[in-house]
C-alpha cells in the first residue's frame, strides 16, 4: 500500500539529485571561464557551431514571423482605425517576446540537440575519459567553450531575429498593404523604449542562452553512454529547454514588465 508513495519519494529524490548534479556542472562551467578566455580559438569554433550555423534558420524564421505579425496586426488594428500603430505592435511583440523566445526554441532544436549528442557521443566513445586520463579537464576544455559560445550567440541571434522581423513587418505593412512608411517607423520609435524593451529583450535572450546550453551540456554529459542514452539525451534537451524557456519567459516578463 505504501509502495506508490515510496516510488514517488524515490523519483523525487532522483530528480533532486539530478538537479544537484546539473548545478555542480554549472559551477564547473563557470570555473572554466579563465581557461576559455585564454584559448579564444576554442570559443570561436563554438560560436561558429552554435551561432553561425543557426543564423539561416533564425533569420528565415524571423522574416516569416515578422510578415505574419504584419498581416495579422494590420487586420486587427485596421478595425479600430489604428493601422498606423502596426510598427509598435510588430516591434514590441518581436523585441519583448518573440525574438528571445522563438530564437531560444530554434537554437534548442538546432544547436542544443547537436551539443547534447556531441557530448554524449564523446562520453560513449570514451573521449571524455581519455581527456581525463591525459590530465585535461573535459569540463574546462570541451564543455565550457560550448557554454560561452551559446551564451554569446543567443542574444546576437535574437537581435537578428527581431531586426529581420521588423523589416518583414515593414515589407508587409508598407510594401504590400500600403501603410505610410514614416508612420510605421515614427510610431515605433515613439513607443519602443530602449532600456525597457530592447535591453530587457537582450537580458532575456542571454538568460535563455545560458539555460539552453546548460541543459544541452548537462544532458550530454550525464547521458547513459549508449546509443539509446544519447538519443534520449537529445530528446530531453529539446523538451526541457522548451519548457524552461517558456516558463522562465513568464517569470522574466512578470519581473520586467509588470510594474
Amino acid at each position: 500500500m505504501l509502495d506508490p508513495l515510496a516510488r514517488l519519494g524515490r523519483s523525487g529524490i532522483a530528480a533532486l539529485a539530478r538537479l544537484g548534479e546539473a548545478h555542480l556542472l554549472l559551477v564547473g562551467l563557470l570555473g572554466g571561464t579563465w581557461d576559455t578566455l585564454v584559448r579564444p580559438r576554442l570559443l570561436i569554433a563554438q560560436v561558429y557551431g552554435i551561432g553561425v550555423l543557426s543564423t539561416l534558420i533564425v533569420v528565415v524564421s524571423g522574416l516569416f514571423v515578422g510578415m505574419v505579425l504584419g498581416l495579422q496586426g494590420y487586420y486587427v488594428l485596421s478595425q479600430f482605425g489604428a493601422a498606423e500603430s502596426l510598427g509598435i505592435m510588430v516591434a514590441a511583440s518581436l523585441v519583448r517576446e518573440l525574438g528571445p523566445v522563438v530564437t531560444a526554441l530554434l537554437v534548442a532544436g538546432r544547436a542544443g540537440s547537436a551539443l547534447a549528442a556531441e557530448i554524449g557521443l564523446m562520453k560513449a566513445t570514451e573521449q571524455l575519459s581519455a581527456l581525463e586520463m591525459m590530465a585535461v579537464d573535459p569540463i574546462k576544455r570541451i564543455l565550457t567553450p560550448r557554454f560561452y559560445g551559446g551564451l554569446l550567440a543567443m542574444p546576437l541571434l535574437a537581435a537578428m531575429f527581431s531586426a529581420v522581423g521588423v523589416l518583414g513587418g515593414y515589407f508587409i505593412g508598407v510594401g504590400l498593404l500600403g501603410l505610410d512608411g514614416g508612420a510605421y517607423w515614427s510610431q515605433m520609435q515613439a513607443k519602443i523604449d530602449f532600456s525597457d524593451d530592447i535591453v530587457n529583450g537582450v537580458i532575456k535572450s542571454v538568460v535563455f542562452g545560458l539555460v539552453v546550453t546548460w541543459i544541452a551540456l548537462f544532458q550530454g554529459y550525464a547521458a547513459t553512454p549508449t546509443a539509446e542514452g544519447v538519443s534520449r539525451a537529445t530528446t530531453r534537451t529539446v523538451v526541457h529547454s522548451a519548457l524552461a524557456v517558456l516558463g522562465l519567459d513568464f517569470v522574466l516578463t512578470a519581473l520586467m514588465f509588470g510594474e
Binding site: 537581435a159 531586426a163 521588423v166 517607423w185 520609435q189 523604449d193 530602449f194 530592447i198
Partner: peptide, 11 residues
C-alpha cells in the same frame, strides 16, 4: 541588428 533595433526601432 542590435544597433538597428536601438536606433531605428526605439526611442
Amino acid at each position: 541588428a542590435l544597433f538597428f533595433l536601438a536606433m531605428q526601432a526605439s526611442n
